[in-house]
Simulated scan of single mutants.
Amino acid sequence: MTNLSKEQQTEFEAAAFRRLVNHLRERTDVQNIDLMNLAGFCRNCLSNWYLDAANAAGAPLTREESRELIYGMPYEDWKQLHQGEATDSQKAAFEASKPKQ
C-alpha cells in the first residue's frame, strides 16, 4: 500500500472532494440524471453523503445546507438556472439502471 499518514490521506481525500465539487459546479451542462445513468450517483447523492457524515459527527446541518455546500447555491436556484426536463430516453435509462430490489 502507501506510506501516507492517516492525516495525509484525509487531507488528500478532502482536496480531491473539493476538486470534484468544483468540477461539478462548473459542469452545469451535465444533468444529475446523466450522472445517475452513467455513474450511479449525482450531486444530490454527494450532498446526502455529506449530510450523513455531518450527522454521524453530531454537526447541526440540514439537507438544504448540505445541498447548498455541494451546488454552491440554494438547490432551488440551481434547478431554475441549470436543470432541464429529463428526456424520455434519460428517464428510461434511469429506470433500467436502478438496482433491482
Rank of each mutant, 00 (worst) to 15 (best):
Y71A: 01
K91M: 15
E64F: 03
Q83S: 14
G58I: 01
L51E: 00
L69F: 04
W49F: 15
A93L: 15
S97D: 15
M73R: 03
G72K: 01
Q90N: 13
E95F: 06
E76V: 13
P74L: 09
D77Q: 11
H82R: 02
L46C: 10
E85F: 13
T62E: 06
C45S: 12
W78N: 06
D52F: 06
G58D: 04
G84F: 10
E95Y: 15
K91V: 14
E76K: 13
L81N: 07
A54L: 08
W49G: 07
G72R: 05
E64T: 02
K79Q: 11
Q83N: 10
A56T: 07
S97N: 15
P74H: 05
R67H: 06
E68I: 00
Y71G: 00
S66G: 04
A54M: 10
Y71P: 00
S47Y: 05
Y71I: 02
T62L: 09
L69Y: 04
G58F: 01
Y50A: 07
R63N: 06
T62M: 12
Q80L: 09
G84H: 12
W78L: 07
A92I: 07
T87L: 11
R67W: 02
Y75C: 07
A92D: 13
I70L: 03
Y50C: 12
E64R: 03
W78A: 04
W49C: 11
A86M: 14
A59D: 14
P60M: 09
N55Y: 10
A56H: 08
A53D: 05
Y50L: 15
A93M: 15
K98W: 03
L46A: 05
G84I: 12
R67S: 02
P60N: 10
P60D: 11
A54T: 08
A96D: 14
L46Q: 06
N48P: 07
E68Y: 02
A92M: 14
G58P: 00
A57W: 00
S89I: 15
S66W: 02
